[in-house]
Design a protein around this nucleic acid. Structure first.
Length: 392
DNA sequence: GAAAAACCTCGCCC
DNA sequence: AGGGCGAGGTTTT
């Protein structure tokens, strides 16, 4: 059943404190979907949250599942509190940017184009599972996998514009027989075993709230504790520490960050082809010494600036890049909605054919984009209509 | 202990 | 056309 969307509320946060387009697709969370141009939707703590970025603030609204009648009265809606927590809004990001810019010319160079990139405060369990999925992987496929996890194991919350929204599954929902096999059928590969075992461990061998309690212990202790989980090594542990456990100095070093360290910071010690533990720690220490207590936050800005998904922002003028961003967002919409969620239920061959067909139609649609938001909106509507008719 | 090899799948490249 | 290769690592040799 479809639920009428409530009115919009305002979160008085400027783009320099929070840039949705960057933060929601830079690889921190893998579940936000573009539901319309400049409109992001995701399930969060039992509700479907939708966000829009305005020049001076953020607009938001929440849809609760039927049965939560209190959701209709704004006084009982705690979504603003939820968003302030989720986006870590008590942290003054502009002050941090000023500091990092004053100690690092390279950061200063990137900071204008890549403003408003902050670290989220996500649910630790979701983060553990998401980053177990991230090994030997890319953002596009990680998003697909996490969405499939919610679709097949998470509770259904609402259906909006004929798109089903499911919350992220609790550990207990994944601590049941047959999960590994089902995850393999969904294309999780060798990560299926790690997720199934991690869920069993968290659900059956630890007290409730065990992961969340790591917010209260030191960075070192939290990091070392996370290594108990199968499929979690130093890098994934640092991702969870930084993005879920209030450890702003945690600095995940992947091959990408390693390249940034060598290319932009002349980092020495390029011994092996692979990143060993000694080099891993040395790079983290180097950046913590340079940027200070919140080095993990600063690292996220440079990491985002280096993502291929944002390469068009670097070189183009404002007008051109706006159009490019909108076009890219439409592509993201196509890729991350129901079409892709169903993909792994089909055979690989069928899947490839269907994606190719969608690509062709997408290119035909692109011709209709001349300029501005209105044309893009009509394209999005066309895509939605086509998807509806195609599925019925 | 350090350094390869294996692990699943997808998408891009030549 | 289709094999080769790497992608935000971890675990096993």
């Amino acid at each position: 059943m479809t639920i009428a969307a409530p009115l919009w509320s305002t979160l008085p946060v400027p783009p320099t404190e929070l840039c949705l387009d960057k933060v929601l697709r830079c690889g921190q969370s893998f579940r936000w979907k573009l539901s319309a141009p400049n409109e992001w939707t995701c399930t969060l703590r039992g509700r479907v949250v939708t966000l829009q970025q305005e020049p001076s603030h953020i607009k938001y609204r929440a849809v609760f599942p039927p049965g939560r009648s209190d959701s209709t009265t704004p006084t009982n809606d705690d979504t603003e509190e939820l968003l302030r927590d989720y986006f870590n809004l008590s942290v003054n990001l502009e002050a941090l940017y000023s500091h990092w810019s004053s100690v690092d010319p390279n950061f200063l160079k990137k900071s204008t184009t890549f403003a408003g990139i902050r670290i989220l405060r996500q649910d630790p369990w979701e983060n553990v599972v998401s980053f177990i999925c991230s090994s030997n992987n890319n953002i596009s496929r990680i998003s697909q996998m996490v969405n499939n996890l919610c679709l097949h194991f998470g509770p259904h919350l609402a259906t909006i514009d004929s798109i089903d929204y499911h919350d992220f599954p609790e550990p207990s929902a994944l601590a049941v027989p047959g999960v590994e096999q089902r995850l393999r059928e969904l294309g999780f590969g060798y990560r299926a075993k790690y997720i199934a075992k991690a869920a069993l461990l968290v659900a059956n061998e630890r007290v409730p709230g065990w992961l969340n309690s790591l917010r209260k212990v030191s960075y070192r202790e939290a990091h070392d504790t996370l290594l108990e989980l199968p499929g979690v090594g130093p890098k994934v542990a640092d991702c969870v520490c930084l993005m879920s456990l209030d450890k702003p100095g945690a600095l995940p070093v992947d091959t990408h960050v390693w390249q940034i360290a060598q290319r932009d910071y002349k980092f020495k010690g390029v011994k092996g082809k692979t990143l060993n533990k000694t080099t891993y720690d040395a790079i983290g220490d180097h950046f913590r010494k340079l940027w200070g207590e919140e080095a993990g936050w600063a690292h996220s800005v440079l990491f985002t600036a280096d993502l291929k998904a944002f390469s068009e922002v670097k070189n183009e003028t404002t007008v051109v890049s706006t159009k490019a961003v909108l076009t890219a967002q439409v592509e993201t919409l196509m890729q991350n909605t129901s079409i892709k969620q169903e993909q792994s239920m089909m055979t690989a061959e069928t899947s490839r054919k269907r994606v190719k067909r969608e690509d062709v139609e997408e290119k035909e649609g692109e011709k209709e984009i001349n300029d501005g938001v209105a044309e893009t909106s009509s394209l999005v509507d066309r895509i939605k209509r086509r998807r509806r008719s195609g599925r019925s």
